[in-house]
Computed example of a mutant assay.
Amino acid sequence: MKKRLIFIGTLATITVLGISWSRGGADPVMKDNYPSIPKDTTYRGQVAWPLETRDRSIAGEASGVAVAPNGDVYYLHRGSNSYGDDTYITEPTLIVLDGKTMHVKKRLGAGLFKSPHGLEVDDQNNIWITDISLNQVFKLDASGKVLQTFGNAYGPFTEVGLRIRNVLPSIPLQLDEKTFARPTDVTVFKDGSFAVSDGYRNSRIVMFDQKGTVKWEVNELGKQDGQFNLPHGISSDDEMNLYVADRDNARVQIFNRNGKHIDTWSSKELGRPYGIEVGANGKVYVADGGNYLNGQKKNAQSQIVILNKQGKIEKRFGTWGKEAGQLRIAHDIAVGSDGTIYVAELLNKRLQLFSEKR
């Protein structure tokens, strides 16, 4: 009997770890269907990339989008790789589009990344990219040359330990504060300091100064204010407040420049935030990826949500599909100075823009 119990216990442990390994340690919290999304009459959607045959042949999973100070649009994708792959991508993963004509100006990033995820362009036109397979944050110049990398190398058992910890959170695993565990996004401030959402196997946001020294972190798995379950996107406003898309908690959390929790926005209408951007107009734009990756394949939804600084929803729109103006997992979002909304769509493997109808 004792041997049988030991066998059952061992089998259960292997099963749990097997599930953890297959899904990367995720612990999704399902959310009820939110109310129907209103039909939009304000914005017109159109595909911005890929348009040319050669670009369609290399277009991969959409990951990130950002607008540079000069208005150019930067788009990040994974080429022939998929989420979590461990080989370098041979295709150019970063596409730079002229902000006025939407013509391709540059194709960068070939051979640099394995599974790029988050994207930011700072006030000095430096390009910041997080990679969830390399577990690093990259800072590149405008030509695509790597200037700096942030993130310590893993020890021999770090990866296994992280996967186990995501299923069994009580198991201790001490990580150096500069060690990322699949970092999801980055936001950069005018003084050169930056904050990273470190979300797939950690549950934290971490603030760095201009030299890459850690100033503070908020690091706890959970549902309470100040806790996270997959912080997936991060943005900031002029006061250096941080806005975090807390994806598997289906909410947005706001922190001040010192890491103090300010507010939490959560409602069925908000959906499941994947990406977030604070616009120059002060409004907050959310890419809601919906529940598709959390098991709801039938009647899937994805939308764009616009909120004011108090968290009140002013507009929400989007229908599921492959046509222009439709969405299939809005993964990241950016906003131009003219109010144009740019969305990176994971499943449609494209960049789409939404401009106000004239």
Score class of each variant (00 low, 15 high):
Val305Trp: 06
Tyr243Ile: 03
Gln301Tyr: 12
Lys283Glu: 12
Gly295Arg: 12
Asn249Gln: 06
Gln301Thr: 14
Leu230Trp: 01
Tyr285Asn: 03
Leu270Thr: 05
Leu242Pro: 01
Gly275Pro: 11
Ser267Val: 00
Asp263Asn: 15
Leu270Glu: 05
Trp265Pro: 03
Glu269Leu: 10
Leu242Cys: 02
Ile276Thr: 08
Pro273Lys: 06
Asn281Gly: 14
Gly290Glu: 09
Ser236Met: 05
Glu277Thr: 12
Phe255Tyr: 15
Leu293Lys: 13
Tyr285Thr: 05
Thr264Arg: 05
Gly271Glu: 07
Leu242Gln: 00
Asn258Gly: 09
Asn241Ile: 01
Val278Gly: 08
Val252Ala: 04
His261Phe: 13
His261Ile: 14
Gly282Val: 14
Tyr292Thr: 11
Arg257Glu: 08
Asp263Cys: 11
Arg257Gly: 00
Arg251Ser: 01
Met240Lys: 13
Gln296Thr: 13
Asn281Tyr: 09
Lys283Ala: 10
Asn308Val: 08
Gln253Leu: 09
Ile234Arg: 03
Gly295Asn: 12
Gln296Ser: 14
Ser235Val: 01
Trp265Phe: 13
His232Gly: 00
Ala245Leu: 07
Leu230Cys: 04
Ile234His: 01
Ile304Asp: 06
Val278Ala: 10
Ala245Asn: 08
Ile254Phe: 05
Tyr285Leu: 09
Ile234Ala: 00
Ile306Phe: 10
Glu239Trp: 01
Gly259Phe: 09
Pro273Cys: 10
Asp237Met: 03
Ala250Asn: 00
Gly271Arg: 02
Val286Ser: 05
Val244Gln: 02
Tyr292Ser: 11
Asn291Glu: 15
Asn256Asp: 15
Pro273Ala: 11
Ser302Gln: 11
Ser236Pro: 01
His261Cys: 13
Leu242Glu: 00
Asn291His: 11
Pro231Asp: 03
Ile262Glu: 14
Glu277Lys: 15
Arg251Tyr: 02
Ile276Cys: 11
Asn281Val: 10
Val286Met: 08
Glu239Leu: 09
Asn308Cys: 12
Gln296Leu: 14
Tyr285Pro: 02
Asn291Ala: 12
Lys268Thr: 06
Met240Asp: 10
Gly233Met: 00
His232Lys: 00
Gly295Tyr: 11
Asp248Arg: 02
Leu270His: 07
Leu293Glu: 14
Ile234Glu: 00
Leu230Lys: 00
Lys297Leu: 15
Lys283Ile: 07
Leu270Asp: 06
Met240Tyr: 04
Leu307His: 04
Val284His: 05
Asp246Ser: 06
Glu277Met: 13
Val252Leu: 11
